[in-house]
Design a protein around this nucleic acid. Structure first.
Lengths: 344, 344
DNA sequence: TTGTAGGCGTTATCAG
DNA sequence: CTGATAACGCCTACAA
């Protein structure tokens, strides 16, 4: 049915090798070049990926495994990754493992069986044994967003400096005079949550201040979680003067709780977020936030993987790219009650 | 490097055909069965998908093309589709075309070149010419959510009865006595928006009522759009007594506008939505809404496609599955000013 | 039930 | 620069 290189050979009178070489970027006489181009167009020919794969053992397909497809950050990363890869001719198999370690492991196996050339993974499992089948077969891996210590040296990675970001954010509040700071965190045990928590403590420590323990709320990175967590903070005997919410979903939930309780920002409460929903650019542009470079994360991860695929037979150099975050200034943070007045 | 069936043949002393047959579900002597199983495990063997594909012309891969990955409804569909297909051994190539018709066309071509066995598409382009390359090559297609008239008979589809859903929703408001009903619609020209608009008018027509034209707001199915549209409705000289928001994103945006303006539902305004954000189950459980069966849509689409793939050489029977929606009762709609008191 | 052999469409080697 | 030719690993008649 579909045209093959044999058909082109027949029409043009050229040999298979010549055609193959040209189709793969090789040099050919201008006359033959035109001949082949015409035939390709006429026959509506495209290379048979099966045959090519059989010969080259490369599928030009990348597997992406993420915890949840309906989390803004993850989706965003998938989008940028896919874009970058598609421009280089790579297709992307997307697997949402529903934050289920067993499913995650299954999916990695599935992808390996499908002969993907590489795997991008925002890991759910903290130990990384789900990636063993890929490692065994020499499938290059790039971790995104969350590192896995036991895998150091065996995989590459792209992360942001979560601790630093959190430190910067917290510093903003502390230096503004806030002391009773609420922080709404992701689940205990999740890499990013731990790091952001650490940064929060460090910022205090560096200033010789102690953390207001009542303000620490572990949540689950969901909108609902953020909503509930903020409600909890607002209904405690002692109110925070500022709240730092550590991801986009929870920020949305938390801000709804605020608006329900008719709490004004920053008059009644200072508010700071780690990432924020797109919606907020229109809706609440004054929100101060620490932004992760989604685009750069996705692109870097894709490029890191592509480089690993290039490195033909040479031993792959694994590396972890640490991207920095940026404080997007707004007006949702105002000096806290204990701030010293500055001389101007 | 990787083990092949030849290795298994060598180890077990069996012939290739026997092994191949067994691996594909054929019958083999129990003794040989065990022999092969052992060898497979020992060698960590999996079928080479390239070689298999070359023989069978099937990739066991499905392409999915959607307008936006970061729209809750689309993402949800992708999730269910992927789940269903993976359970049947199919991998899914996800393509987000950014609501760009040119990109959409490009992606269909990309997928065809990748030899996908079938395509699932929530179309951006209203005319369907982007699917021509797939049709030319006999790649089965299932449209989701939006139909394309010119393609009738050439593709299958899964939709919900949008007009009916919208009619039911509007009826609820009209029969509750509302007359000044605001409706926030998707973009003109988009299939679902047109259908939902039609249902809105029909409900009026069936009751001999005229539509309150000032209440009709075309928006863009985004949160921002919903927010802006609701603000617009609320700042007009004449206020609606009820508002019907026609997708999930806009519902979120609209409800934020409500809460900002401190408008109470349903005391000040009745509120009804088409789909709603997950968040609302916790946050605003009383919202009355028309729900689409996301899960069923995804599963049906996947199964329709799988059936088309089964139908080996027989002429494919194209069909359009029309799923029905369900009104999820809440308390966000109360009798309008012009309601007649009912006898109990 | 089992084994043998040919071919699917490319790529890569090696002469010419 | 070009062209025969031999794999790549699996499936599938066909024969035993």
């Amino acid at each position: 049915m579909a045209a093959t290189m044999n058909d082109i050979a027949r029409i043009t009178g050229l040999g298979l090798a010549t055609i193959s070489k040209y189709l793969n970027g090789g040099n050919v006489l201008p006359r033959n070049k035109a001949l082949i181009d015409d035939a390709v167009k006429e026959l509506n020919f495209t290379v048979n990926t099966f045959a090519r794969g059989l010969k080259t053992s490369r599928s030009h397909t990348i597997g992406v495994v993420i915890p949840e497809l309906n989390f803004a950050f993850f989706t965003s990363i998938v989008t940028y990754v896919t874009d970058t890869l598609r421009k280089r001719g790579y297709a992307v198999l997307v697997c949402d493992c529903r934050t289920d370690e067993k499913l995650e492991k299954e999916m990695v196996g599935f992808l390996v069986d499908k002969r993907v050339d590489g795997i991008l993974n925002i890991p759910t499992s903290p130990n990384g044994e789900h990636l063993q089948p890929a490692l065994d077969r020499g499938v290059p891996i790039v971790l995104i967003d969350r590192m896995i210590q036991p895998l150091a040296g065996q995989v590459s990675g792209v992360i942001v400096d979560n601790a630093d970001a959190s430190r910067k954010a917290t510093a903003l509040l502390l230096d503004g005079g806030h002391r009773d700071i609420g922080i709404i965190l992701g689940p205990k045990g999740v890499y990013t949550a731990e790091q952001r928590y650490a940064g929060f403590r460090e910022a205090h420590g560096q200033r010789g201040l102690t953390v207001w323990e009542e303000g620490i709320v572990y949540s689950d990175y969901t909108m609902e979680g953020g909503y509930v967590a903020m409600k909890k903070l607002l209904s405690a005997p002692q109110l925070p003067t500022a709240v730092f919410v550590t991801n986009s979903e929870m920020t949305l939930g938390a801000s709804i709780a605020l608006s329900e309780k008719q709490i004004r920002v920053p008059e009644d409460l200072s508010f700071l977020s780690f990432d924020k929903p797109d919606l907020f650019n229109a809706l609440f542009p004054t929100l101060t936030s620490v932004q992760q470079p989604h685009n750069a994360i996705g692109e870097t991860a894709a490029n890191l993987l592509l480089n690993m695929l290039q490195a033909d037979k040479e031993p792959i150099q694994h590396q972890v790219a640490m991207l920095s975050t940026q404080v997007l200034p707004g007006t949702s943070v105002r000096p806290g009650p204990r701030s010293k007045r500055m001389t101007i």
